[in-house]
Computed example of a mutant assay.
Amino acid sequence: MLASLRRRAVDAVEIMDGPDCDPERLDRTYADFHVVNLAVSGWRSMYCRSIRPGLSTTRPSTLLDVGSGGGDVSRCLARWAARDGLRLEVTAIDPDVRAHTWASAQPPVPGLSFRRALSSELVAEGARFDFVVSNHVLHHLSAAELQGLLADSRALARRGVLHADIARGRLAYLGFSLGTWPFFRRSYIRADGLTSIRRSFTAAELRRVAPAGWTVRRAHPYRLELRWRAPRAAATATETAVGTAPDA
């Protein structure tokens, strides 16, 4: 299995992406995402470093979360901003009716709305947001879908884009396998998480497919951040908004 990590397992399919997966286990997976993402995704750090400095206590900002799944990252971002006394309206979109139904059924969070949609639909509507983000979406996409998402993201973002994902690696695979082995028995977290790692990019691979103007930052543990910043004339004056973190 580890030998397969030398190349992306682009043909591997996550169980939860199948139309006939068990609905109870799928719902449990959406619920468990909150625990996993808090432990490994690093969104608290990304919010503090790349989103919060660009927010205001008086001027409203908008953020789009693409492929939001169960909506746990969206809820965290809305709650963190509110806790900091900052004005942020978060829109979370996902084309999967199952994800949208589950996320919409959770207790409401002020400043957060869910919508079943593709990013391309919002582009066609002429929608714009200050920030566009995603979590663990890139590795799901085909080459054409990835380029489409990046083009959509640039069209939708006034200020910057931050797509966060897993970095493929042996230690990441072994660590996740061992760390989740005693847990998540009633969900697809462990099986699909391992598949996600196999499908994910390395930093070098992501740099090769990223269009001009995008930067790839490696974060720990085993994280990738794909960023784009709007031209200075269209961006806010702050130098710490989304997309300004240096490569690593």
Rank of each mutant, 00 (worst) to 15 (best):
F131Q: 03
A151R: 15
L146H: 06
P108E: 13
V97E: 15
Q106W: 07
I93T: 03
L141P: 06
S134P: 00
L149G: 06
E125I: 06
S142I: 07
R98H: 14
Q106D: 08
S113F: 05
V132T: 00
L88C: 02
S119V: 14
P110K: 11
S134R: 02
L88M: 05
S134G: 07
L122H: 08
S120Q: 14
F131D: 00
V123F: 04
R116I: 05
S153E: 05
A99Q: 08
A127L: 07
A155F: 04
Q106I: 13
A117S: 13
L156S: 04
P110Y: 08
V123G: 01
P110S: 11
H139I: 00
G126R: 08
H100F: 14
S120A: 15
A127C: 11
S104L: 06
L118K: 07
S104R: 14
V137I: 06
A103S: 12
P95M: 13
V123W: 11
H100C: 08
D96E: 14
T101H: 14
H136R: 08
P95N: 13
L138R: 11
V90W: 01
D130Q: 06
D130E: 10
F131S: 00
A144F: 04
R128Q: 10
V137K: 07
L118H: 13
V132G: 03
T101I: 01
E121F: 04
Q106R: 12
H140C: 12
S113D: 11
H140R: 09
L112A: 05
S153T: 09
A124T: 13
L156K: 04
F131R: 02
V90N: 01
L88E: 03
H140A: 09
Q147E: 15
S113A: 15
L146E: 02
D130W: 01
F129H: 01
V109Y: 01
W102H: 15
S119L: 13
I93N: 03
V97R: 15
Q106G: 09
H139T: 02
L122E: 02
H140G: 10
L149N: 11
P110I: 06
F129G: 00
L149C: 12
L146C: 12
L149Q: 14
Q147G: 14
E125N: 11
P107K: 03
F114A: 06
P95D: 10
A99T: 08
L122P: 02
E121L: 03
R115N: 06
L156G: 03
T101E: 15
G148L: 09
P95W: 04
G126V: 05
